[in-house]
Design a protein around this nucleic acid. Sequence first.
DNA 1: TTGTATGCGTTATCAT
DNA 2: ATGATAACGCATACAA
Lengths: 345, 345
Amino acid sequence: MQEKPNLHQVARLAGVSIASASRALTGQSASAETVRKVRSAAKQLGYVPDATARTLRLGGTRQVVFAVDDIGNPNYVAMLRAIEHELGHRGIRLSVSSTGREMKQTLDLVRSLNVGVADGLIISPIRVTPQLRRALEECVVPVVVIGSLDKEVAIDRVRVNSTKAVEMAVAHLVETGRRHIAFINGPLDTNPGAARQLGFETAASHHALSYSSGHMICADDFTAAAGLAAGNKLIKNLKGAGEPIDAIVAANDLIGVGAISACVGAGLQVPTDVAVTGIDDTEIAAVFNPPLTSVSLRAAKRGRQAAQLLLKRFEEPFRDPELLTVDPVLKVRASTLPPQPEGTY
Amino acid sequence: MQEKPNLHQVARLAGVSIASASRALTGQSASAETVRKVRSAAKQLGYVPDATARTLRLGGTRQVVFAVDDIGNPNYVAMLRAIEHELGHRGIRLSVSSTGREMKQTLDLVRSLNVGVADGLIISPIRVTPQLRRALEECVVPVVVIGSLDKEVAIDRVRVNSTKAVEMAVAHLVETGRRHIAFINGPLDTNPGAARQLGFETAASHHALSYSSGHMICADDFTAAAGLAAGNKLIKNLKGAGEPIDAIVAANDLIGVGAISACVGAGLQVPTDVAVTGIDDTEIAAVFNPPLTSVSLRAAKRGRQAAQLLLKRFEEPFRDPELLTVDPVLKVRASTLPPQPEGTY
DNA sequence: TTGTATGCGTTATCAT
DNA sequence: ATGATAACGCATACAA
């Protein structure tokens, strides 16, 4: 931890003007001799140009913030990696903010961008209030949203049809012989929660599945712990109440693994007694016991596209907002093996 | 996305000097009337003071970076949350950098702090080269290290005895009747890897465990996927080679859950045939199938302490460097239930 | 090519 | 209490 020399001192040591020193270092017109002297002086002093001053002069922090509700969710980590990769090439630093469930924190964050700490924002909110929408619209720096926005709004966005993702999960379960399917959703007041709820109800009626309200339950959170708690509650609710379930659709992988744990804890075999599906196809799905069938929402791809959208807007600030859509993909694993293996009879 | 007004425009609209405007907003001496006019003008224009200019004038970015190798590791997420919580109160933004396995990236990051993008650094590196140590020593902003540093160096640090953590895991396994214990470590050229290796060998000799080199294997990474691959390899190695194992100590939870998957895939029951322990006590441990016994390294506590250390150094820049140590705690779960339940015979 | 001088937006110092 | 002005560190338009 030492003191930081400035350009003035470098110039003095090199015996040139501060302007020449600046040019020699930034690679403008300067004589070979000057460049040599300045470089040497800079190295000797350990000079590094100050980012703040440079930013003030040039405009642009070369920094972007990525805001999510819960960075503990592997789904967001996948986005993060993709974004970092895309932006890192351009020498843009990524600042990650895990805003938590408090809407106020999210609002503060978005508004704080107006002070000029970053050149852009990529945000993936699970709850979108009118306030947040306004804050995003009024943001002084370009914004890219990963996810839903309820109302159409003039903001670059990349989305995925998670309603369809749930439908795919249900269809897969029906195809592999399941008929009594329960649904563990996340909180209904979130966008993903609402979309997935719609997906389940649509699929259930499409396949003429009989299900009571007892078959649907909401976890308090999109986490494994909440999934475990919800799973336990679901099993308790169903105990001795009519026909037992033979499958569970979980709103994401974390809830899904929690649900499996709940089943196992209750003496239910997965997939023999009950099949379980997740959503997101996070790393944990492939390595869980049993491996979890999941519908990939292409988090990495969405992250990459969001970063590209932001980069594009930097270059063309007044371009019309773009909406990119990616399609979900089903990944079948052992958690949905048919109760009687196909081809056996 | 609108244009950003500056203080000059606010002052003009309010009909006062720029100096008065500044004072009215920052709460210095100003008449009630002036404050009213300026506030009103600022609100009308949507004025927000520019962070860059303020930083340049005042010094201090009110931003701290947290650098880890892999933000996908829940262990670091726990630290992140704690740090964010501690720093957020003081209005300090946290910028997260996932440097990846490339040492060059880490070096670049540390050096980039010298340009003044942040006021401090909290770093938890798994590999520490002499270069990195030098870069940390020479950093112009305060640094706090979570983890090891090999050689003693004048930097604030919080550590945990992970050697002892492995010893605790082994002791627990021995106490619950296991004698043939394998060890799946992470890469040996990392600090955690080296410390845990020492822990296992110490414990093995202390308990007079007979183990061959075939009982020890290193995963390529501290991830679940690498743990799965290493687990498969371990099981293959051991097949038909003398006495079978009855327990696996994994270098962290992710490797641990990967190892369980490998066991299950090979038809081995956990914990009946083989017990498995992890380290870190991450969220996944509690919800895995079976729940994973793990030694907590108190990630949240270490994160909190690191943040406090940094805050302290901000206030007293020349205080002697401090070294805080937290103790590991064993969390027993179903993955190490005794083969024959205790008290049964 | 080189040096002088100005401005980026803010806050602090100094008179008034 | 208020206004003019300097300064933070850098990059550049302009003159030499």
